[in-house]
Design a protein around this nucleic acid. Structure first.
Length: 577
RNA sequence: CGGGGUGUGGCGCAGCUUGGUAGCGCGCUCCGUUCGGGACGGAGAGGUCCCCGGUUCAAAUCCGGGCACCCCGACCA
C-alpha cells in the first residue's frame, strides 16, 4: 500500500503508473504517444480511454482552474444526467442526429446519451425560471458527453466519451446575453492562460448548436483538425470555415467584347489549362457541380481557390458531388470543360464567388475540349454571388492587418450565443416587469479539459517527454531518490517532501526501490514536472542539492539549509514567468 | 460512409511469398554482480498466432466471410 498521502503529494512506491518505453504502434499525434508512454491514459476501444491516477491529476488541475474561474464570474455548478428521455430532444428537432447514441429502457421508452446538455438545462429552466427577478443565471457542470464519432482519432483528442465543462446562461434580453457572453470570454482567457497554452479566440461557425454568434478557442498544434486564418498579431482570426480575405486581382488585361471559344484538347484541370493558356490560375474560373436537395448547383470560383464545403452549405444546404452522368445530362460536356455560359438558371442554380465580380475569365465551353475566354459575370452569364471559397495563405486580412497565415489548431473551447433556439421550442419563458411573457435568451459555453491537457503536451514537449506548464503539471516538484527509502537519503527526501508540501507545493517522491537511477531520470523526464530534485549520496551530508528545471534543463545546486524555500522560489519564478 | 493499412506472449516486431513441432528485442520472475541518465551474467515463466468456416495428411502461413484497431478523406460543439 502507498504510504499515507501528504496533502496533494505522493510517494510513488506502490502506485499504478504504467509507463512504457516504446511509442504505441498506432499513435501518430505527439500527445497520443506521450500520454500513453507517460502512463496518463490507456485505451479501452476506439475513442474510449481510461485516465490513470496520474493522468487524472492533470485533468483535475485543469478542472480546478475551470471551477475557480467559472465561480469567479458567478456561474453555479450543478450536475445533470448523462441519459435523457428522447422526447426532450425531439422537441428541438435534434433527436436522431448521426452522432447520437440512442437506446431504450426496459419499458421500450426511447432514451439518448447526452452529446451536450442544451435541451436538458433548458427543460429545467423552463420549469423554474418564471420572473425577470430570476434572471440572469449561469449554470455549469463538468460532465460526461457521449458522441458516436464517425472517426475517433489522435488519442484523447477526438473521442466518443469525454468530460466537458459546459455552461449555459439565461438572460432576459440581448444586452444581458452580451454581458454573460463577455463574462465567459473573460473567464476563458484566464482559464487558458493559467493552463499555460498558446491560444487564439477566433470567429466560428454556429454549426449544429445553432444561434447567432460564436467564437472558438483554439490551441495551435500540428495535430489539430481545424484550421484558423489569422493575420499577424491576430487582430483578424477566424476558423477557415467562415474566414474571408482579400484576394489580389491578377492583370486581366482588356476584356474582349464577347466570349471567344477556343480548342483545348485534352485539358481537364486548372493546372493544365493555366499551362496551356499561359494565364495565371486566378484568370481561370473553376466550375464545380453539386447536387442539393432542390436540384443541381453550379459553384464557380477562381482557379487558385477551392469551393468551401461549409460556406456553400450555408447557401444550398446538404449536398453531394454530382455524378458524371448527371453532369453530362445538364451541361452536355464532361467535367473539365464546364462553365456557366449558356446554362439555364432555371435548371441549374449558379453561384459565383464574389471574386468573379471583377475581371474576365476563361471558363469551360460546355463542349468537350473547348473553353471560352473573356467571360464576364453579369454580361455573359448571370449568377448569385457570395463568398464560397477557401482562404489562401498570403491573402490579406479584410481589416487591413496584413497577410493571412493558416494555422492548424486544436479546438479547446467555444462560446455560443444561442438566443432562443432552445428556449423557444422548450418553452423557457418569464414574465417581464410589465407582466409580459418573454422568451429567455440563452448562451452556451464549452471547454474540453482533456483537450486542454493534450494541447499542452502538443505545445510542450521535447525528445525526452512532456514539458508541462506549471499550471497543470501533475506535480510541481518531482524528487528522484537515489538510494533506499530507509537510508539517510530516504529520510532526507521524505523530510523535503513534507517541507515542500507545507509550502503549498505538490510533490512526487520517486521512492521506488530497486530501480536504477537512469530509469528514474528517464521516467521523470517523460512525466515532465516543472522541477526535478535529485537526492542521493552526493546530497548528504553537506549538499549541495541538485535541482533541474525540466523545460530548460538548467541545473542549480542549492544548499541543504533552506532548500525547500529555495525550491519554492525557483518554482514561483517558473510559474510567474 | 469511401480509400489504405495492421491484427502473432504485457509492449514493439519477425515468420506468411514457397503449408511441416512459433521466434527476436524489451518488459516480467529468481540468483549473483552492479547502482547519479533506461547495466551485466545465469536460470525461468508466459502465446486459443483476432474470430468463424473451407482446402489439406498437416494452416500463423492458402481460400471465403466476419470483427477489431490505426491512417487519409468525408463528417464533426
Amino acid at each position: 500500500m502507498p504510504a499515507a498521502p501528504y496533502r496533494g503529494s505522493w510517494r510513488l512506491q506502490g502506485r499504478f503508473w504504467p509507463t512504457v518505453r516504446d511509442d504505441p504502434a498506432d499513435a501518430e499525434a505527439i500527445s497520443h504517444k506521450l500520454s500513453v508512454r507517460a502512463g496518463l491514459v490507456r485505451q479501452l476501444a476506439a475513442g474510449l480511454y481510461t485516465v490513470t491516477p496520474i493522468g487524472l491529476r492533470v485533468i483535475q488541475r485543469v478542472e480546478a482552474i475551470i471551477r475557480e474561474e467559472m465561480n469567479r464570474i458567478g456561474a453555479q455548478e450543478l450536475l445533470m444526467p448523462v441519459m435523457h428521455p428522447a422526447e426532450i430532444w425531439e422537441a428541438t428537432g435534434r433527436y436522431g442526429l448521426a452522432e447520437q447514441f440512442r437506446l431504450e429502457d426496459r419499458g421500450g421508452r426511447k432514451m439518448v446519451l447526452g452529446m451536450t446538455h442544451e435541451e436538458i438545462v433548458t427543460w429545467h429552466a423552463a420549469r423554474e425560471m418564471r420572473s425577470y427577478r430570476d434572471l440572469p443565471q449561469s449554470w455549469y457542470q463538468i460532465q460526461t458527453k457521449l458522441r458516436d464519432e464517425p472517426r475517433p482519432k489522435s488519442g484523447m483528442l477526438r473521442v466518443r466519451e469525454f468530460t466537458m465543462k459546459d455552461s449555459y446562461s439565461f438572460d432576459a434580453d440581448e444586452a444581458g446575453l452580451e454581458r454573460s457572453y463577455e463574462a465567459h470570454s473573460d473567464a476563458y482567457a484566464r482559464i487558458f492562460d493559467r493552463s499555460g497554452l498558446v491560444w487564439y479566440r477566433v470567429e466560428s461557425d454556429v454549426g449544429m448548436m445553432g444561434g447567432s454568434g460564436a467564437h472558438e478557442y483554439m490551441a495551435p498544434s500540428s495535430a489539430g483538425e481545424d484550421v484558423v486564418a489569422r493575420s499577424p498579431g491576430g487582430s483578424y482570426a477566424a476558423n477557415v470555415e467562415l474566414a474571408v480575405s482579400v484576394a489580389a486581382d491578377p492583370e486581366f488585361g482588356e476584356a474582349p467584347d464577347a466570349p471567344g471559344e477556343f480548342a483545348t484538347p485534352g485539358i481537364g484541370s486548372i493546372d493544365e489549362l493555366a499551362e496551356f493558356t499561359g494565364l495565371a490560375p486566378a484568370c481561370l474560373a473553376k466550375s464545380v457541380v453539386l447536387v442539393s436537395d432542390s436540384g443541381p448547383v453550379l459553384a464557380i470560383v477562381r482557379g487558385e481557390h477551392q469551393v468551401h464545403e461549409k460556406k456553400i452549405a450555408h447557401l444550398i444546404g446538404a449536398h453531394r458531388a454530382a455524378h458524371p452522368e448527371e453532369i453530362r445530362e445538364w451541361f452536355g460536356a464532361d467535367p473539365g470543360s464546364l462553365g456557366p455560359v449558356g446554362i439555364d438558371a432555371g435548371t441549374v442554380r449558379i453561384i459565383a464567388d464574389s471574386t468573379l465580380q471583377t475581371g474576365h475569365y476563361v471558363t469551360g465551353a460546355n463542349r468537350d475540349g473547348f473553353h471560352l475566354r473573356g467571360v464576364v459575370l453579369g454580361r455573359d452569364f448571370q449568377a448569385e454571388t457570395a463568398d464560397i471559397r477557401t482562404v489562401l495563405e498570403g491573402e490579406h486580412a479584410v481589416d487591413g492587418s496584413g497577410p493571412i497565415e493558416l494555422v492548424p489548431v486544436i479546438e479547446i473551447g467555444n462560446i455560443f450565443k444561442l438566443g432562443t433556439k432552445y428556449s423557444e421550442p422548450l418553452d423557457a419563458r418569464y414574465l417581464d416587469e410589465n407582466g409580459q411573457e418573454q422568451v429567455i435568451i440563452m448562451g452556451s459555453y464549452g471547454i474540453g479539459p482533456a483537450r486542454v491537457a493534450m494541447a499542452a503536451i502538443e505545445q510542450g514537449h521535447d525528445d525526452d517527454g512532456i514539458v508541462w506548464p506549471t499550471g497543470i503539471a501533475p506535480f510541481d516538484v518531482h524528487i528522484v531518490l537515489i538510494g533506499d527509502p530507509d537510508s539517510e537519503q530516504g529520510a532526507f527526501a521524505e523530510a523535503l517532501l513534507g517541507e515542500l508540501s507545507d509550502l503549498g507545493l505538490e510533490v512526487l517522491l520517486d521512492d521506488r526501490p530497486g530501480l536504477r537511477p537512469g530509469e528514474k531520470f528517464v521516467e521523470a523526464d517523460l512525466l515532465g514536472c516543472p522541477l526535478r530534485v535529485t537526492v542521493g549520496k552526493r546530497t548528504l551530508p553537506d549538499g549541495p542539492l541538485e535541482v533541474q528545471v525540466r523545460r530548460t534543463r538548467e541545473k542549480s545546486e542549492i544548499a541543504l539549509e533552506g532548500a525547500a524555500e529555495q525550491i519554492r522560489s525557483l518554482w514561483l519564478g517558473l510559474a510567474g514567468g
